[in-house]
Simulated scan of single mutants.
Amino acid sequence: MFEMSTAWWEIPARAATIYLVLLVLMRVSGKRTVGQFTPFDLLVVMLLSESVSAGLSGEEHSVTGGLLGAFTLIGLNVLVAIASSRSVRLQHIVEGDPVLIGRDGRIYADTLKKNHVPLLDVERALREADCDLKDMKYAFLEADGGISVLKDSTGAVKPE
Rank of each mutant, 00 (worst) to 15 (best):
T17R: 02
I18K: 07
V21M: 04
V21L: 06
L22Y: 12
L23M: 12
V24G: 00
L25Y: 06
L25A: 14
M26Q: 02
V28A: 11
S29P: 14
S29A: 15
G30L: 10
R32E: 01
V34T: 11
V34G: 01
Q36W: 08
Q36E: 12
F37S: 11
T38I: 06
F40K: 14
D41L: 14
M46P: 00
L47Y: 12
L47I: 07
S49Y: 05
S51V: 05
S53Q: 06
S53I: 01
L56H: 00
L56G: 00
S57D: 07
S57R: 10
G58P: 03
E60T: 08
E60C: 06
H61V: 05
S62G: 05
T64I: 05
T64S: 12
G66V: 04
L67A: 13
L68R: 07
L68T: 13
L68Q: 04
G69V: 03
G69Q: 01
T72W: 10
I74K: 03
G75K: 05
L76Y: 01
N77M: 04
L79E: 10
A83E: 07
A83K: 00
A83W: 01
S84F: 11
S84T: 15
R86S: 03
S87F: 12
S87K: 13
S87V: 10
R89Q: 05
L90F: 01
H92Q: 14
V94I: 13
E95L: 10
P98L: 11
V99F: 13
L100G: 03
I101S: 05
G105Y: 01
I107A: 07
T111M: 12
K113L: 15
K114A: 14
K114I: 09
N115M: 04
N115Y: 15
H116D: 07
D121F: 03
A125D: 09
A125Y: 11
A125E: 06
E128A: 11
E128K: 13
A129N: 14
D130P: 00
C131F: 08
D132T: 11
L133E: 11
K134Q: 09
M136P: 04
M136D: 09
M136F: 12
A139K: 02
F140A: 01
L141G: 14
E142V: 01
A143V: 02
A143P: 06
A143Y: 00
D144A: 00
S148W: 03
V149Q: 08
L150M: 09
K151V: 04
D152G: 08
D152S: 07
G155L: 04
G155A: 10
A156W: 06
V157G: 02
K158W: 05
